[in-house]
Write a protein that binds this DNA or RNA. Sequence first.
DNA 1: CCTGAAACGCATAAGGA
DNA 2: TCCTTATGCGTTTCAGG
Lengths: 167, 167
Amino acid sequence: MPNEIKETNTVKQVRHQPAKLDDVDRRILGILAQDSSRSYVDLGQELHLSAPAVHDRVKRLKRDGVIKATVAKIDGCKVGRTLLAFVLVNTKNVVSTKRLLSLGNLPEIEEMHTVAGDSGVLLKVRVRETEGLEDLLGKLQDIEGVDGTRSYIVLSTFVERGPDPGE
Amino acid sequence: MPNEIKETNTVKQVRHQPAKLDDVDRRILGILAQDSSRSYVDLGQELHLSAPAVHDRVKRLKRDGVIKATVAKIDGCKVGRTLLAFVLVNTKNVVSTKRLLSLGNLPEIEEMHTVAGDSGVLLKVRVRETEGLEDLLGKLQDIEGVDGTRSYIVLSTFVERGPDPGE
DNA sequence: CCTGAAACGCATAAGGA
DNA sequence: TCCTTATGCGTTTCAGG
């Protein structure tokens, strides 16, 4: 049952305890964030460490949830989703926001966040054509309590990556 | 030289030729988009295929650019970036947009898109604290030709994934 | 937390239906 | 495009510092 909204899909913007990370950990994260197929031997050479040492660290980073998963990055255009857009959705109240969130399993929706400010929900959506966006906006506006939407069609993407481990 | 803006980092929103994909390809993409660490033996059992057959398909999907990379998903909070926000940046003209794009290598910036509509650029940023956002907004507004910014602070994230291979 | 050695399983190539 | 077979490498475990 993929793409189903479960409790665990929700990532509350609470202040998690940041994990204790040293410089080597952050370098590992920086490398794996770009390419998780690198071998431990390979990483070990770059970091002047043995393969098992790297493995231990990666294992710990996964166990602590710093690395949430390793995933394949798919080209939206190549799978037929040629149009990327961000949609701000105004909702009247919390109840209508909840109704909106139940649409999170739609395959067009890549990201769904509640945001502060007048608009209640921000969506990142990837659709087949402008028609697909029209359909989606229709679904959104059918929801009771949804005041209106504001769409930003993406022309070009210049950066698209995960969090920087920094420091 | 990580996080450096290169030609290849730019993903123009041109209509790529969608790759020819059958149902099995899409199922593979769907699985690997969630967990790329699954073994070919494992995938083969789920798809009723031999491991090398799966491997051949994955190899082709990578060669054709459908799978752009396999990466580790990092928890922003766990690495100390507790505040997620989207920033719409109004730019006067194309020249100021270009100046803005040169900031793409800042570690706080996860996504940078040019968008249609009155606002020129949309940013997804992940910072340490509100202070970090303030710093970033300062940098943006220092750019000549940047009219103003509008920020949407994320309260909760309900969906965050890649493109759905669909069909 | 690390190293080094050793065992196991998987990725990968080859060849054929 | 798929299968089976076979091999080498990487992952993973373990003992030890």
